[in-house]
Simulated scan of single mutants.
Amino acid sequence: MLNLILLHGALGHSKIFEPLKEELSKYFTIYTPLFSGHGTSGLPQDGISIEKYTIELKEFIEKNNLHNVYIFGHSMGGYAALCYALEYPEKLNSVMTLGTKFNWTEEQALKESTMLNSDIIAEKVPKYAALLEAQHGEKWKELLHSIAGLMVSLGKNPPLKDKLSMINVPIQIMVGDKDNMVTLEESTEVYRSLPNARLAVLPDTKHPMDKVRPNLLLEVMKDFWNLSE
Rank of each mutant, 00 (worst) to 15 (best):
E87Q: 15
L131K: 08
V69E: 12
T32S: 05
L143F: 02
E112R: 13
K52L: 06
E62Q: 15
Q108V: 14
T114E: 14
E62A: 15
L86Q: 13
S118Y: 13
I61K: 13
G42H: 03
K101I: 09
L82G: 12
P44Y: 01
N103W: 06
S49D: 04
P89M: 13
G78F: 15
H38P: 06
G47Y: 00
M96N: 06
E51I: 08
T40Q: 06
Q108Y: 15
L132R: 02
L98R: 10
G73I: 09
I48Q: 00
A81S: 15
K127V: 12
E106F: 09
A80P: 07
Q135E: 12
V125K: 12
L131I: 02
E56C: 03
Y70L: 14
S94L: 10
Y84H: 13
E90V: 12
L34Q: 07
L131C: 00
M96I: 13
L34C: 00
F35C: 00
G77V: 08
E142Y: 09
A130W: 00
C83V: 11
N103P: 05
K101V: 10
G47D: 04
F35W: 02
E90Y: 14
P44I: 00
P126F: 03
G37V: 00
F60T: 02
G77Y: 11
A80V: 15
L86W: 13
W140F: 07
A130C: 02
A109W: 07
N68R: 12
I120C: 10
L34P: 00
Y88L: 10
G39C: 03
I55W: 08
I61T: 12
Q108H: 15
E87N: 15
P89W: 10
D46K: 06
H136W: 05
G99W: 11
T54M: 11
V69W: 10
K124H: 08
Y31L: 04
K101Y: 09
N103G: 14
G99D: 07
G47S: 03
A85Y: 14
L116N: 10
S94C: 14
I50Q: 02
S49F: 02
L131G: 00
I121T: 11
N65F: 13
D119E: 11
Q108I: 14
G77H: 10
K63M: 12
A129G: 05
G73K: 07
I71F: 10
L144G: 04
K124L: 06
N117A: 07
G77M: 11
P44H: 01
K139C: 01
D119R: 11
A80L: 08
N68V: 10
S118R: 07
E87H: 14
A130K: 08
T40R: 08
L43T: 02
D119W: 04
Y53T: 02
Y31D: 03
F72N: 12
K139P: 01
V95D: 10
L57S: 02
K63D: 14
Q135P: 04
V69Q: 13
L92W: 14
S49Q: 03
P33D: 01
L143W: 04
G99V: 06
W104G: 11
I50H: 00
M76N: 10
L92T: 09
N117V: 06
W140I: 01
G39H: 01
A129T: 05
T40D: 04
S36E: 06
